[in-house]
Amino acid sequence: MPLKIIVGIKWVPNTTSVNIDPKTGTLIREGIPSVVNPHDLTAVEMALKLKDRYGGTVTAISMAPPSALAGLEHVIGMGVDRGILASDRAFAGADTLATSYVLSKVIEKIGEYDLIIMGHETIDSSTAHIGAQVASWLRLPYVYYAVDIEYNEQDRSIIVRRMLENAYETYKVYLPAVVSIAMHTYEPRRVKVSNKLRAKTEDVIQVWTSKDLDIDINCAGLRGSPTVVSAIDFVPKVPRKNLVFKERDPKKAAKWLIDQLIQEGLLEL
């Protein structure tokens, strides 16, 4: 039996340009172009590799504002079959609990699935909660830090290799299950023009609001979020000297640099 895979992708501000509001301590997300969380592209790549190898379908899901349609189009361009965007004002302001709740409701509504794949973590919040929480809501087994998945059709299980600091663990897990893929494990493939055309011209993306889902509205969005950020402390700035050697002679430059390092007590000769 081919695999029915669901991948979670998050639409995140491109954090290379994110600023923090010094007064409120919150992220300024406004006006910053968003991208698909890069580690989720790794997850998508894993899903597509499994599809290539074993056949099946890949559905991408995201809870995000409507602009995330562009992110779903992107992963469909890579080869994902269809996308579902959970988007509703009632979902705004969610902490990880409320996010994972809505995502698990989306997955329940999709109904048929064997494997749920998530990214390692996001670049804008990096809690790495969502995979574990979705697994909890759905009462499924969960493996984190996966680098490799093999599928065994006979007994509908997967063999997952999981990376630890200095070892690999191998698990056999019966499906359905949730797996998060370790970041940088795979290079995401490029989009294909035929797939992108499909994303634009065929109805492969659906938008679901709270009305489409069987949810308790008090568990979603701000209302469903018990976590409160009570304070943000900035990492103190380390004072740095800024010295520039202006001549062009590399020999002199090297000598100068070594002298500086000795002076700073960083180097002994």
Binding site: H74, V191, V193, K196, L197, K200
Partner: peptide
């Protein structure tokens, strides 16, 4: 106006 725009292509 109805054109299809594909980026990253």
């Amino acid at each position: 106006q109805g054109a299809i725009l594909l980026t990253e292509i």
